[in-house]
Every structure is written in C-alpha cells, then in structure tokens.
C-alpha cells in the first residue's frame, strides 16, 4: 500500500471516506445476514456474530461451513484461521498509533481489513492515521450491523433459497472476497493449490475438513517465499 500525501485529506474528508467505506461494506453485510438466516441461525445468533466476531470473511465462513454440514469445530477452526491476518493488522496498528493499554483493548475490536488499510494511508501522520482508523472502524461496525439485521429479515421472507439462487450467491461471495487478493504470483499459486486440495478431499473427508487442509497451501508458499 502506497501512502498518499497526508495533507491531501482534511479531517472532514477522512470522515467522509470512512462513511462511504462503511456504506460499501454494508452491502456485504446484507448478504451475510441473508445467508446466515438461510443457514438456520437465529436472528440474535446472526447479530451476535456481527457485533462480537466482527470480521466479514470469518463470519461468512463460519455459517457456510455449518450450513454445508461441517462440524462446529471445523467451522470455528476455519473462521479462526481466516482471522489470523487481523492479528497481523493489530501489530501494524499498535506500531502506527502507539495506543495505551486500555486503547489497545477496544482498538483491537475495530482491527479489520478496512480500518487497517485506511490507517496505512497515513503512515506519515499519527493523528490522521488514528482518525482514519477509528472513523473507518466505527463506520463499518455501525453499517455492518444494521445491514446484517436487514439482510436477515429480508431472507426470512424466502422459503426456498435454491429457487432464487441464494446457494449460488455464497460461492460468488467467496469469489468476490478472494479475487482482489490475487495480485501476486504467490497469492495465485496459493489459491490454485488450495482449490485443488479442497476439491480432491471433498468426496472423502467430512465437510469443513478439506478447507482446513487447503490452509496448508499458504504454509507451503510462505516457506518457499521465506527462503
């Protein structure tokens, strides 16, 4: 991520950017609420995932692994592995904003893809970075949770998800999440190996397990890259 000149954006502009990012992720929150409903989760379970787990890809993975017949354990493991990157983001935010201990406790909850990316744009100015991080984190949190509730309630009126193609929407949703990540050769090769592993083991292992095995492709490529 290339930093843009910090003076180019006023505090007001940063807030406006944060709101538009929140609105954009909100549309994804509608999909999550709908799919969680179709997967059989209750309203408050769905809302709890958005309030407490608060990491889109992990939430999506958790409900879809269970909907596909996977065990709770493999769903938790998949969601937890997807969240490992948030730990890395936490390190970056701690380095960038130098928060005190109590700030670290609640900043951690807002540490997601969008807030970290926004803060990273201002690595020249700690004050702007902090504003960008907090405004984006809070904006995404608010819109994400409203959208989750809306999506859940919309899907409640649908009786048969196959008829309106909601099952096809899940695969396309994961595709839309992974496609923007395929920017380097490492990411492309990792994705190809992961798909091969997942497809090969789907007929022989319990649902959810092939996805966990596919995580090995990341370990493999990371080892090669480290040399």
């Amino acid at each position: 991520m290339r930093p843009i000149p910090p003076r180019a954006l006023s505090p007001k502009q940063i807030t406006l950017d944060a709101i538009s990012i929140g609105l954009a992720t909100g549309t994804y929150g509608i999909s999550f609420g709908a799919i969680s409903s179709v997967a059989g989760f209750s309203f408050w379970q769905t809302q709890t995932l958005s309030l407490l787990l608060f990491s889109g890809a992990s939430q999506f993975a958790y409900v879809s692994v269970i909907a596909a017949g996977g065990s709770v354990t493999s769903a938790i493991a998949t969601a937890a592995l997807l969240g490992v990157r948030n730990g890395l983001y936490g390190m970056r935010i701690a380095q960038l904003l130098i928060p005190n201990l109590s700030q670290r406790v609640w900043y951690a909850h807002l540490t997601i893809d969008e807030s970290t990316a926004m803060a990273n744009r201002f690595d020249q100015s700690q004050q702007s970075a902090k504003r960008a991080f907090l405004a984006t984190g809070i904006s995404v949190f608010v819109f994400w949770n409203i959208a989750t509730a809306l999506g859940f309630l919309l899907a409640q009126s649908i009786t048969s998800p196959e008829i309106i193609g909601l099952d096809a929407a899940i695969g396309a949703g994961f595709f839309a999440l992974v496609a923007p990540r395929l920017t380097t050769k490492e990411h492309k090769v990792t994705a190809l190996i992961a798909v091969a592993i997942a497809i090969s083991f789907t007929p022989v292992l319990p649902a959810g397990v092939p996805i966990l095995l596919a995580a090995l492709s990341a370990a493999l490529i990371a080892v090669r890259g480290g040399k």
Binding site: F175, T190, A191
Partner: peptide
C-alpha cells in the same frame, strides 16, 4: 496468504 487459501477453497 492464509485468507487467500481459505477463501479460494471455500469458493470451490
């Protein structure tokens, strides 16, 4: 790389 691997596998 982990999210790339997991999201690609979930798509498939």
């Amino acid at each position: 790389l982990l999210p790339t691997a997991l999201l690609a596998a979930l798509t498939a």
